[in-house]
Nucleic acid binder design. Structure first.
Lengths: 343, 343
DNA sequence: AGGATTTTTCAAAACGTTTTAAATTTGTAT
DNA sequence: ATACAAATTTAAAACGTTTTGAAAAATCCT
């Protein structure tokens, strides 16, 4: 493998000049630069990343530690995330190193990687409230970027959506359609975003002078939505609309509604937040579901770039991005039923 | 971050001695070694991997390029594979760098990674016959290890199972049970292992003086097995036993058998090869299925170690491992029916 | 032409480690 | 003590880059 020295020997130039020529420094003569570039091409020169990294103090690798579910099942969106992430990082000449978190201590794999002393930073996702990993990385002063947040005024770089607005937009839409009894099936409160959604929900309901008594906290999947919806529909004054934390929950809710002999959207409206948008579901049922939408994969390239900017010393304040989710109105929402569902 | 120089300054020793002490060289005095170790602990010394790698010429990273299916769906066993692979590599102080192959040219992502000049080698899986990636890596003289093989006498390190034996063991079992009409539902012949299975099947059938006219080549999933089985069962002299390339195929086959009003194993026996053994399936249906078994994940740690051995110069001949799959007889196989299925 | 700039190139240091070859210390046998 | 071998330690080179500070070359101005 050709090195800078080879090129410099070939051309009778110093290594320093060759290095500068190839790295586009302005103070090198056009003629020289061309000669160097040509020689580099001819000799098939590829910079030795390891040497570069030794002198720059960077490893050129960032870590992603994936949490594996007990059943070892693959997350629907995992490949999408990986694809976008590696693409974004590659553009910044950085590799993604994967590690697996199987244990009970969420911090352990981070500690292991840090001790190996080989990563420039981490990408974290799915933060819990006051996330232990976040606390650890802050304490260790290891750079990272978070998809989402784990507290209200985070002192670290993040990329997230405005979850209060996700909730309040949904409420606003439903209220405009005349709904009075609106239920929230929220995610588990260990997720920080669930707190934000709840807050947005409560504020918006208040603003519309509606009662926020139909709130449930549930797991992520269809069965969870199904069970919750059944309970809520059994209420003396049942909801005419559901705001759901996830699309699977929404499908469960719709099944429950159907099972109760009711129709969507004539009798009951359903809104969900959709952060996944996996291909198969999109073509089958999604067309029917009104959602606030912010695909996970869209977050990945910005995440990669922001982490790199962070490593390059960009100030944290400039690396705190909050996006607004799109509101996509489809067939699962309609005007509130005239006399209430059960009349 | 403390360096060797810091320790050497602290103790008034040379950097070389400190390095040797920490790396367990025999020629360093016990007393010195202890002092050094102690100082290293006290200062929280961690070797700078990048510097190590510069001098050893290794990057300490190997690549795994994952092929993503058009629907972005996650492979059932992906996480198992990743988990075992990272564990095996970590034991050899090596990281797994992930890249994604989305394009049409299977070689492109490998070329990209090689040009980046950052990986010590690759782990390849799911080889096709005369795999283009294999040819490319051989030509580029980039070290790799293959899970499986792509040709008959491979000049590279591999870890595989004896696929001829997988087929012939299945036939032997069924022949012992008195089956005469045995069908093979093989995988697509672009997979090299499918050729090996076919060869094993033909030889074994020959050995038992049975006719090999019931052979189909199919995709991997339940529906494929279902369709093939229906066709085969419509034969004038239908099979009393099926040998299936995968467990999903086997489930499709069993469904077809049931739909024809036949029972497993009284009327028809089913054997499959199981390389996945995902948790959920194991508890539901697997107990019933007789299989030749060689879980994918069991291959991962050996793969990691063999690649590292390869990088360390171990001869290729010592890195060509062929295992025998286990034969696990369960409820889906039984004696051949007395007078044939249709009498 | 000669001094003052400006542009371009260079030698050397630095990054943190491993390893080679040589030097020093220690031990042993005369 | 002396010579010789063995055990231990050392200085220095090497890995391939970037970067600093200085030198050389080219250009400009009178």
């Amino acid at each position: 493998m050709a090195t800078l020295k080879d090129i410099s020997a070939e051309l009778g130039l110093s290594v320093a000049t060759v290095s500068r020529a190839l790295n586009g420094f302005p103070e090198v003569n056009k003629k020289t630069r061309d000669k160097v570039q040509q020689a580099a091409d001819r000799l098939g020169y590829r910079p030795n990343r390891v040497a570069q990294r030794l002198v720059t103090g960077r490893s050129g690798m960032v870590g992603l530690i994936i949490k594996i579910k007990p059943d070892m099942s693959a997350d629907q969106t995992f490949f999408e995330v990986i694809t976008a992430l590696t693409a974004g990082l590659a553009a910044r000449d950085t590799e993604l190193v994967l590690a697996v978190d199987q244990g009970t201590d969420p911090v352990a794999p981070y500690r292991r990687m840090i001790e190996k002393n080989i990563l420039d930073g981490f990408i974290l996702n799915e933060p819990e409230v006051n996330d232990a990993r976040v606390a650890f990385l802050l304490e260790q002063k290891v750079p990272f970027i978070l998809h989402g947040t784990d507290r209200d005024d985070p002192p670290y770089p993040f990329y997230r959506i405005d979850n209060q607005k996700v909730a309040s937009d949904s409420i606003d839409l439903l209220a405009r359609l005349g709904h009075k009894r609106i239920a929230l099936i929220n995610a588990r409160l260990r997720h920080h975003f669930a707190h934000e959604r709840l807050e947005g929900f409560l504020k918006a309901m208040d603003r519309h002078n509606l009662s926020s008594d139909l709130v449930k906290t549930e797991n992520w999947l269809a069965d969870d939505g199904y069970m919750s919806a059944l309970e809520l529909l059994a209420h003396a004054s049942p909801p005419t609309a559901f705001v759901c934390a996830s699309t699977p929950i929404a499908y469960g809710v719709m099944r429950a509604i159907r099972d109760k002999g009711l129709r969507v959207p004539e009798d009951v409206s359903v809104v969900a937040h959709d952060d996944a948008m996996p291909v198969p579901r999109a073509v089958t049922l999604d067309h029917a579901l009104t959602v606030t939408r912010s695909p996970l994969r869209d977050a990945c390239e910005p995440l990669a770039h922001m982490l790199m900017d962070h490593l390059n010393g960009k100030s944290v304040a400039d690396l705190q991005v909050t996006l607004t989710a799109d509101m996509i109105v489809r067939g699962s929402t309609g005007p509130a039923p005239k006399g209430g569902v059960l009349t």
